[in-house]
Design a protein around this nucleic acid. Structure first.
Length: 687
DNA sequence: CGAGCTTAGCGTT
DNA sequence: GGATGAACGCTAAGCTCG
């Protein structure tokens, strides 16, 4: 249906890409011509066809929004209006106008760096990237409609004289470091969001030096130029969302200040197109515009009832806060990496052997990256893009943490083989659900077995499912051969129906390797809200009560649970403690494991002194589990003597059930995979 | 019913 | 002449399992 209208006089008008919308430096560009060229160059390609499919799907979603909105009765609308009004009141109450944020954005950063190092590029249209993709274009090139994220061959068509310069991250990192040295002087806890962007809370520096935010912005930009020879733009506002919008207003080499005043904010936001807001991209813009007739931020509030009726609560909160000009004002806590991935695009290949060869390379890359950061993970996700640009992902969650190339490849191959035959143009692997990293960060909410017992958390309830680990080293064939079967604690026993009695959950423990800092080696390159632990503490202090880092709140929660412990559980804990002491004194062959003992348990750094099991030093995590399990065994012995009836509820189970789970889990998921494909196929046919 | 898992998709640089 | 990236974080929805 849509195709008929698209196929009219100007079919290119309905072909939207991420790079056809307006951006700084694009004023005065013949948009119609650009759009037509992009369309002509793309038309008929596999990429284009896929885009059309995606576009049709979005159109369906829009239709869905429209029809659902027309179906709302007056009663529905007044109901949702009430919900919306309540949300707005709550959001308004959360408005903070006491902080001043500055967003810095380097002007055409990569291109500017290249020009700095090669002045002959000055005043010539230039793009960093290649014929397949452009990272950044300088302002000369932007006059032709050339933009970041645009394929180079289209850019060349728009601007035949365009010069291509290959990307060189080393250079950009160097200059990024220089800019950050400047940022640090204005806010030691500044948030870098990429190599060329950062948020600074300049409240304190303005107050201490008794200067306006405008003066700080001027000074900072001059300092950045002084330090690097590069220009940047700045935006100032009462929160980060607004500051980011402001930094785009007078780009390049300019700035814009929005006063910390509610009226000023509301006026500013009223006519602001929604697409200017970070987080609202092509699809959301279309859905709001074509589905609900929302073009500006102000209209978010005018149509608040519809927003609450048609979107999730979370999305509605976001949209309404946009309408109110609200954004984040606190310095966020240290955030840890949640996944690590690597992917490669190549000319489409069909040969299974070649495909698996590619996979091996990617597995090796991922393994190297993980080892570099000391990460281990248990969820492995395979991503493939077919020759027709269809993207699929397939994941497995393992019962142990892996990081070696061999392990990754083993599981990735299984995932991939079940998809073949295919013609692929991209393969990617992502690891998530990190575990007890060898060197990297440990979830600070998790504690060592020893600390857990000492602090009295043995009395706490089962909680924090996110952090529960289900280690079974028996996946490893060499370990399977071990005669020692007592030290695996099973995930099968973990979910406890009897919540309150669930007070000794080994599955929720994580080995503490003693490192909590974000592994930041020099300047972080991607998405780095990188801070040292000192910075984190500083940020917490500054933020006041509302924004204590997650680490601390979780710990507080744990303390709370401590105090809530019942007297019998207190007794249990005391029993454990005293029994540990007893064991320590009485049993000289089988040591109770303290931090120091965790090392000394290994005879010749190889053989377990308790059970004789041999595990080389490189199996850091496995050894940690191993020693913890011995401790768990000890505890169980102790518990038997303390409260035999309570012990029944504890979940320290033999190996058998773990094995059962290993067998069944992957099967179940692969079945579902097939089912999904089947369903998908059927859907396509019916469409 | 809730937690955990899987898959897909959006947005950002 | 052909040719449209990489690496994250986040959310929604659907499913399974206990």
């Amino acid at each position: 249906m849509d195709a008929s209208s698209d196929a009219g006089d100007r079919p290119w008008q309905s072909y939207h890409t991420v790079y056809t919308n307006a951006k700084a430096g694009m004023e005065g560009v013949d948009k119609e011509k650009v759009q037509r060229t992009v369309y002509e160059m793309s038309k008929g390609s596999k990429f284009f066809e896929n885009e059309q499919k995606k576009e049709a799907f979005i159109q369906k979603k829009i239709e869905n929004i429209r029809s659902r909105s027309t179906l709302l009765t007056e009663a529905d609308i007044s109901h949702f209006q009430m919900i919306a009004d309540k949300k707005v009141i709550e959001l308004e109450a959360s408005r903070v106008l006491t902080r001043t944020w500055l967003h810095v954005d380097m002007d055409a950063f990569y291109a500017a760096v290249e020009t700095l190092e090669n002045p002959s590029l000055k005043c010539k249209p230039m793009a960093v990237g290649g014929l397949s993709m452009i990272s950044t274009a300088n302002y000369e090139a932007r006059k032709f409609g050339v933009r970041a994220a645009m394929p180079g061959f289209i850019a060349k068509k728009l601007c035949p004289d365009l010069i291509f310069v290959p990307t060189d991250f080393k250079k950009y990192t160097h200059y990024s470091t220089l800019t950050r040295k400047v940022f640090e002087k204005y806010d030691p806890y500044f948030m870098a969001t990429s190599l060329d962007e950062a948020y600074l809370d300049i409240t304190d520096v303005c107050r201490d030096r008794r200067v306006t935010s405008e003066e700080i912005a001027e000074e900072l930009r001059a300092a950045v130029y002084e330090e690097t020879g590069l220009t940047c733009s700045a935006g100032v506002g009462p929160n980060r969302m607004l500051a980011k919008v402001c930094s785009d207003i007078n780009k390049p080499n300019g700035q814009f200040v929005l006063q910390n005043d509610r009226m000023a904010v509301m006026t500013f936001i009223s006519s602001l197109p929604i697409r200017k807001i970070g987080g609202i991209g092509k699809v959301t813009e279309h859905m709001l515009r074509d589905g609900l007739g929302i073009y500006t931020c102000e209209e978010m509030l005018q149509k608040s009832a519809y927003i609450c009726a048609l979107f999730s609560s979370c999305a509605a909160d976001f949209f309404l806060s946009v309408g109110l000009g609200l954004g984040k004002t606190e310095t966020p806590e240290l955030s840890m990496r949640k996944s690590i991935s690597t992917e490669r695009t190549f000319p489409a290949i069909e040969d299974d052997t070649l495909i698996l060869q590619k996979l091996e390379e990617i597995a090796e890359n991922l393994s190297n990256d993980m080892n570099r950061e000391g990460l281990t993970g248990r969820t492995l996700t395979l991503k493939v893009k077919t020759a027709s640009f269809e993207v699929r992902s397939r994941a497995v969650t393992l019962q142990r943490y892996i990081c070696s190339k061999e392990d990754i490849l083993t599981h990735a191959s299984k995932l991939l083989k079940s998809e073949l035959p295919l013609s692929l143009r991209l393969i990617g692997l992502r690891m998530s659900q990190f575990g007890n990293e060898k060197l990297g960060p440990v979830d600070p909410t998790q504690r060592t077995l020893k600390n857990f017992i000492k602090s009295g958390d043995a009395s706490s309830k089962a909680a924090d499912g996110d952090n529960s680990i289900q280690p079974t080293i028996s996946n490893n064939s060499s370990l399977n051969e071990s005669k020692n079967s007592g030290w695996i604690y099973s995930p099968d026993a973990s979910p406890c129906k009897n919540g309150d009695a669930c007070d000794f959950d080994l599955g929720h423990l994580l080995v503490d390797n003693g490192r909590h800092d974000f592994p930041c080696h020099g300047p972080c390159e991607m998405n780095d809200s990188c801070r040292s632990s000192q910075c984190k503490e500083g940020a917490a202090e500054r933020n006041g009560d509302n924004s204590v880092p997650r680490t601390q709140t979780s710990m507080e929660a744990l303390e709370m649970r401590d105090t809530e412990a019942s007297s019998s559980l207190e007794q249990l804990k005391e029993g454990i403690d005293s029994n540990i002491e007893e064991t320590r004194v009485s049993d000289d062959k089988q040591q109770v494991l303290s931090n120091q003992d965790e090392q000394s348990i290994w005879i010749n750094d190889y053989k377990c002194s308790v059970c004789g099991f041999e595990l080389p030093p490189c199996f850091i995590e496995e050894r940690q589990y191993h020693s913890d399990c011995h401790l768990a065994e000890r505890l169980q012995e102790s518990l038997k003597q303390v409260t035999p009836d309570l012990l029944q509820k504890h979940r320290f189970t033999p190996k058998g059930s773990a094995r059962k789970r290993q067998k069944s889990a992957p099967k179940a998921s692969s079945h579902r995979t097939i089912d999904l494909f089947f369903m998908k196929g059927k859907q396509n046919i019916s469409e």
